[in-house]
Design a protein around this nucleic acid. Structure first.
Length: 120
DNA sequence: GCAGTGACTTTCG
DNA sequence: ACGAAAGCCACTG
């Protein structure tokens, strides 16, 4: 089967990018959020913010990875359209104690969680 | 192998 | 301040 072949091929090579992104996002504390560029920088690819987002799209449907805690550099919920409902992401963040207004996290400077500083 | 696309960011007008 | 374009890396068709 083609699918079997592809699966074997994929499982053979797992990009460390995925594992790292998942690991970092999983370690994001409740009530905090991080940005794509921060994760990308932590992984060494400062220009790989898009790659982080791309990887995150694969995290969709993974309860292990709180993708809703990952926002853009301005703390804006850019991916809310990709969630189950346009308000799912915001509701989740709000339920975690974050304050969101106009799709943007309030006190973003305080809520920002930098893996480079926290995890080092 | 080339072209298009994307949960981003920065720069120019 | 807002909008458009370029830069970026990896995936898909």
């Amino acid at each position: 089967m083609n699918a079997r072949k592809q699966e074997a091929k994929s499982s053979k090579v797992e990009n460390p990018f995925f594992s790292d992104v998942y690991d970092v996002v999983r370690q994001v504390p409740k009530g905090r959020a991080t940005s794509y560029v921060a994760i990308a920088a932590y992984l060494g690819n400062k220009r790989g913010a898009r790659m982080v987002g791309w990887a995150m799209s694969r995290t969709y449907g993974r309860p292990d990875v709180p993708a809703h805690r990952v926002v853009n550099k301005e703390g804006e919920l850019t991916a809310r359209d990709l969630f189950e409902t346009p308000t799912t992401m915001q509701e989740r963040l709000e339920s975690e104690g974050l304050e969101i207004m106009n799709n943007k996290i309030q006190n973003w400077e305080e809520r920002f969680w930098d893996p480079e500083k926290e995890l080092h």
